[in-house]
Amino acid sequence: MDDQSILTTLKILIIGESGVGKSSLLLRFTDDTFDPELSATIGVDFKVKTITVDGNKAKLAIWDTAGQERFRTLTPSYYRGAQGVILVYDVSSKQSFTQLGNWLNELETFSTKHDIVKMLVGNKIDKDQCGVKSYWLQDQCDDRREISRDEGLKFARKHHMLFIEASAKTKEGVQCAFEELVEKVSKTI
């Protein structure tokens, strides 16, 4: 099984506003766990996972970045050489969505590959239900969805990105997001 195909190493990047769940997505993908008490990333973090896409094994070197403004002087250095990028926003935070343009600019400026494959992930769709049982209480629920699926899809289309909605908490869409990205990346090399 190990010899069945050549192992390629792909550099994948995860970016997005702070607190949108970048590290949680990664943790869900690599360890299939969810830790609500994951501390805020400092600088960049790094994880490795080997996956099989289309019968080809690929070793993913995934760089997880801190979303804080201040770290943005530091983290873009790691954009170099990335073949795929996962751009994350929080469906329950309008602000994390409106900032996406800035992140794309950042990517444009610092990534060295011009054909980098981009995947937009709307995280935290588990919050959609937000546990409110009565209709009249919905308005008072802070955590409800602020960005519809359509909005996300539109943005992704406009900027030629793959798109998926996911939840690191419920596992929904996470595996799929990474696999689709890798599939597209392996087609571009």
Binding site: I42, G43, D45, F46, R70, L74
Partner: peptide
């Protein structure tokens, strides 16, 4: 991961 964060915390500490 912890060590990595510590290595990169110099900037955070300074700030």
């Amino acid at each position: 991961a912890h060590l990595r964060a510590r290595m990169q915390s110099a900037c955070l500490l300074s700030d």
